[in-house]
Design a protein around this nucleic acid. Structure first.
Length: 567
RNA sequence: GCGCCCGUAGCUCAGCCGGAUAGAGCAACGGAUUUCUAAUCCGUCGGUCGGGUGUUCGAGUCACCCCGGGCGCGCCA
């Protein structure tokens, strides 16, 4: 189903051709309701290019526009803008179509791609914490949206399961492990033995040495150490899975760093052989002498001691994704501090001749109320588990206060949906590059651009339908009231907004749209009684409610957020 | 020293490819409720878009230079 915007863009291009101009031209939503619903500045651009009067060009375009079925007569305004105002009948017809459309008007892309989305990537033997949530939520939302648009998406959890920390973890396992604690809270015990070993290592040279030796043994394939390592990975994955279950995050594959171990030497050999890499001070490096920005920032792919590092693993990973998984796009949802790293990796990949659409989807940090990186009072990363629990607890308290009739099981389920939704939405509704200040009060507020506000709009709709009894939705609604017309036009925009998210990886565009939709709905709700209205208005309004509910539900789901039936 | 990101209302933030008089929410103030969930809605107040120069018919948006904050820069990931 074509959107108004793409229909208009097509018509505009035809009009340009008919008027003797090169086809093309862009249409955007009107910047102000006074200018109608859509606008085009094509005449201004053409006027500039040809040195002609833009208003005259605009008149010529308008004379050739065949859009009478959808729009009122286009008007030329200002310096040469062409303004378009939707006809009521056109919107009524479109709503009728949307009511029957499972996809709510969103078309699938014409050329789907195979996209690996690399997000989350927690470290084994450490708890997931606040630092993981942006990557996890952002990556999950982008994957959901890409999938909905028809792409072939592979969600890959590139877990940190092969760091140098395993020397200490293994030494701690052999010397300090408390089996009871391990059974009770595995990751906590792994953290404890790691910390304890680290502490002793700072004082005792022998411990430091022993830990290093354990690491060497692990890397050499020692069966005992391998078995310990494997248990650490398994225990950690079990814990991650619990959190993912709660958060409704799902991966297609989990290829941690260890997966690429035996592929690392080949990466270095290949780069040395091709001359892209060279020896420097004992290490193998790639230099970027012809790229000014990277000229003085070489990338080490094999350390002087012969060990491999992050860059080597990422190069092997890219090779695997492109040659084995046959991906033609890779999205790395990783924080902004690693911008330089990915510039290097992508530069190397391009030189090697890999063709794929690489993107580092970077993002800013989550700050505490003090505007510094969010930490616990003792200065540690806030565990994800604690964050989720607090979100649910706070949501439960608010629900208990606002809606005491709910039974406890209902209340707990709703608290989960609202608490987790609030945390996710707070993240996704913000432009990803900006650092944001984490605030429970703001994200759980029923006012403003928050998950509970959107969820509440949905709940109001469900409440109407519970009272309405059996309804049959009409073929075409009547949009007599301004609030109805506005809401309907907003509903038509969903299909225009969703694909835009992937232009620059901005789920906040979708969040923003949903907020405006909820706003339009609430205005409609105040102005237009639904159940008390006479037919056919009643049925028409029920149809608007139904469609609004479905768009809200679908839109939030694309952000990874659920909706409750009551709250 | 080099590089990247950010700087928009008192606070928290939107403003993608340059478009018309820069928008929300919170806070403040004033209204609306015999309710389909007021968990809401309507209105008022609030701005040298960090500063400057330039490109353009047109700059919050692009270029360059400053200022402020954050982050990163061969052997961590």
């Amino acid at each position: 189903m074509e959107t108004f915007q793409s229909q208009l863009t097509r018509k505009l291009s035809e009009a340009l051709a008919a008027a003797g101009f090169p086809p093309g031209g862009e249409v955007s939503p009107a910047t102000d309701p006074r200018f109608g619903d859509y606008q085009s500045n094509t005449a201004l651009i053409l006027g500039k290019k040809r040195g002609e009067n833009p208003r005259k060009i605009a008149e010529a375009i308008v004379a050739n526009l065949a859009v009478a079925e959808i729009f009122e007569r286009p008007s030329v305004a200002g310096a040469g803008f062409i303004n378009f105002t939707l006809k009521r009948e056109a919107v009524e017809k479109k709503i009728a179509e949307l009511l029957r459309d499972e996809r709510l008007g969103v078309e699938k892309v014409s050329s789907p791609r195979k996209i690996v989305v690399d997000f989350g990537s927690p470290n084994v033997a450490k708890p997931m914490h606040v630092g993981h949530i942006r990557s996890t939520f952002l990556g999950d939302a982008l994957a959901r949206i890409a999938q909905f648009l028809g792409h072939d998406v592979i969600r890959d959890n590139h877990i940190g399961d092969w760091g140098t920390q395993f020397g200490m973890v293994i030494w701690g396992w052999k010397n300090l492990l408390d089996l009871e604690s391990l059974k009770r809270d595995p990751v906590a015990e792994l953290v404890r033995i790691y910390k304890a070993t680290n502490e002793r290592g700072t004082k005792e040279e022998a411990v430091r040495e022993a830990a290093r030796a354990e690491l060497v043994k692990l890397q050499a394939g020692d069966p005992e150490n391998y078995s310990i390592w494997k248990q650490c990975v398994d225990l950690s994955m079990q814990e991650f899975s619990k959190a993912y279950e709660l958060l409704d995050i799902h991966y297609d594959i989990v290829r941690g760093e260890s997966f690429y171990n035996d592929r690392l030497p080949a990466v270095v050999d290949r780069l040395l052989k091709s001359g892209l890499a060279e020896m420097s001070e004992g290490a193998v490096c790639v230099f970027f002498r012809d790229i000014p920005e990277l000229a003085d920032k070489p990338c080490i792919i094999r350390k002087r001691d012969g060990g491999y590092n992050y860059a080597t693993t990422d190069l092997a990973t890219m090779d695997y994704r492109i040659n084995d998984l046959k991906a033609n796009a890779i999205w790395y949802v990783v924080g902004a501090p690693q911008i330089l790293h990915f510039k290097q990796i992508f530069a190397i990949a391009r030189r090697e001749g890999y063709v794929a659409d690489f993107h580092h989807v970077s993002f800013g940090s989550i700050l505490g109320a003090d505007r510094k990186l969010m930490k616990t009072r003792s200065g540690e990363n806030v565990p994800l588990q604690d964050l989720i629990e607090e979100g649910m607890t706070r949501a439960r308290a608010i629900i208990a206060e606002k809606n005491p009739e709910l039974v406890e099981s209902e209340r707990n389920e709703i608290a989960k949906v609202i608490g987790i939704g609030a945390i996710k939405y707070a993240d996704l509704s913000q432009y990803r590059m900006t650092d944001y200040i984490f605030s429970w009060d703001k994200m759980l507020s029923l006012h403003g651009n928050t998950a509970p506000y959107l969820q509440n709009a949905y709940v109001r709709i469900r409440s109407i339908f519970r009272k309405a009894g059996a309804v049959s939705l009409p073929q075409a609604p009547v949009l007599g009231e301004p609030a109805e017309f506005n809401l309907a036009k907003r509903l038509c925009q969903f299909a225009e907004i969703v694909p835009q998210v992937l232009n620059d990886f901005r789920p906040n565009i979708l969040a923003n749209y949903l907020f405006e939709l909820a706003n339009s709905f609430h205005t409609f709700y105040e102005a237009c009684p639904v159940l008390k209205a006479d037919e056919p208005v009643r049925a028409s309004r029920l149809a608007l409610c139904d469609l609004t509910g479905r768009v809200l539900q679908r839109g939030l789901k694309l952000l990874g957020i659920d909706v409750p039936e009551k709250m």
